[in-house]
Simulated scan of single mutants.
Amino acid sequence: MAKKTVATLQTGKNDGRSYSKVIKMVKSPKTGAYIFNEEMVPNEAVKDFFKN
């Protein structure tokens, strides 16, 4: 059987839930096409990520 991959983001029991994967759509200045920026940010910083 194939092995499952395990997320290495968790250092404790509840630490993994304190992060969220956020995706923002940004228009490229070179081509004009849309690109997607993906990041793992703490839950407290999600609103700040989308403000910029």
Rank of each mutant, 00 (worst) to 15 (best):
Asp15His: 10
Thr11Trp: 05
Ser18Ala: 14
Val46Pro: 00
Pro42Leu: 12
Val26Leu: 11
Ala2Gln: 03
Ile23Leu: 10
Thr31Cys: 05
Asn43Tyr: 02
Ser18Pro: 00
Lys47Gly: 04
Val41His: 03
Glu44Gly: 02
Ala45Ser: 12
Gly12Cys: 12
Lys21Gly: 00
Met40Glu: 08
Gly32Ala: 07
Ser20Tyr: 02
Lys27Ala: 03
Ala45Trp: 03
Pro29Glu: 14
Ile35Leu: 14
Ser20Arg: 09
Asn37Glu: 15
Phe49Lys: 01
Lys47Asn: 11
Ala33Gly: 01
Ala45Met: 12
Met40Leu: 15
Ile35His: 06
Ala7Tyr: 04
Thr8Gln: 09
Ile35Ser: 09
Asp15Val: 09
Lys4Val: 06
Glu44Asp: 13
Thr11Met: 12
Tyr34Ser: 09
Ala45Val: 07
Arg17Ile: 05
Gly32Met: 03
Lys30Gln: 12
Lys13Phe: 13
Asn37His: 10
Thr5Ala: 06
Lys3Met: 04
Thr8Val: 07
Met40Asn: 04
Lys3His: 03
Lys21Thr: 11
Lys27Met: 06
Val6Ser: 06
Arg17Lys: 13
Gln10Met: 05
Gly12Ile: 05
Ser20Asp: 02
Asn37Leu: 15
Met25Phe: 08
Met1Thr: 09
Met25Ala: 14
Val22Asn: 04
Gly12Asn: 15
Val46His: 06
Thr5Asn: 04
Pro29Lys: 13
Thr31Arg: 04
Thr8Leu: 09
Lys21Gln: 09
Asp15Phe: 07
Asp48Cys: 03
Val22Tyr: 05
Pro42Phe: 08
Thr31Gly: 04
Gly32Gln: 06
Lys30His: 03
Asn43Ser: 11
Asp15Lys: 12
Lys24Arg: 15
Ser28Ile: 02
Lys4Arg: 08
Glu39Tyr: 05
Thr5Trp: 01
Lys21Pro: 00
Ser28Arg: 11
Lys47Asp: 15
Asn37Ser: 09
Val46Gln: 12
Glu44Asn: 08
Lys27Pro: 00
Ile35Lys: 14
Leu9Met: 08
Lys51Trp: 03
Val6Tyr: 03
Ile23Lys: 15
Glu38Cys: 10
Thr8Met: 05
Ala7Met: 04
Ile35Thr: 10
Gln10Arg: 13
Asn43Pro: 00
Leu9Val: 08
Val22Lys: 02
Gly16Ser: 11
Phe49Asp: 01
Lys51Val: 10
Glu39Asn: 10
Ala33Leu: 08
Gly12Glu: 11
Val6Pro: 00
Lys30Tyr: 05
Lys30Thr: 06
Ile23Ala: 12
Ser28Glu: 07
Ala2Val: 02
Arg17Phe: 14
Glu38His: 05
Lys30Trp: 01
Val22Leu: 07
Met1Val: 08
Met25Lys: 13
Asn52His: 10
Pro29Ile: 07
Lys4Pro: 01
Ile23Trp: 03
Phe36Lys: 15
Val41Ile: 14
Val26Gly: 02
Lys4Gly: 04
Met25Pro: 00
Thr11Gln: 15
Tyr34Gly: 01
Lys13Thr: 13
Lys27Ser: 04
Val26Pro: 00
Val22Phe: 04
Glu38Ser: 11
Lys3Tyr: 02
Val22Ala: 02
Tyr19Ile: 09
